[in-house]
């Protein structure tokens, strides 16, 4: 079976959420315990940060992910 090597990156002007799909096992922990319901499962049960603007960067999804498949990074706002 060909392995996916895809890291999906979702970003707005304050947060960057990366999802390593080949490591994710669709356990649903990140989706269930996101305090702001940022994450929504796709048809494989893997998380998609549909409501990324609601993210408060608590990083609980990252800390509770047993597979190191999701990370949350703050994005520094650039001065224009």
């Amino acid at each position: 079976m060909k392995q996916e090597k895809l890291i999906e990156v979702y970003q707005n002007n304050s947060v960057k959420i990366s999802i390593r799909r080949e490591w994710c096992k669709s356990c649903g922990i990140c989706v269930e315990f996101c305090p702001k319901d940022v994450l929504v499962p796709d048809n494989q049960g893997k998380p998609i940060p549909e409501n990324i603007d609601a993210c408060i960067k608590c990083s609980l999804c990252e800390l509770r992910c047993p597979d190191f498949a999701i990370t949350v990074e703050g994005v520094e706002e650039k001065d224009e």
């Binding site: 080949e22 490591w23 669709s26 498949a69």
Partner: peptide, 21 residues
């Protein structure tokens, strides 16, 4: 060695993360 061999949602991975951090 990843993805790890543990079942989906297994707490071992969460503990591994805590040890590393």
């Amino acid at each position: 060695m990843f993805p790890n061999m543990w079942c989906p949602g297994c707490g071992n991975g969460i503990v591994l993360g805590a040890i590393i951090r």
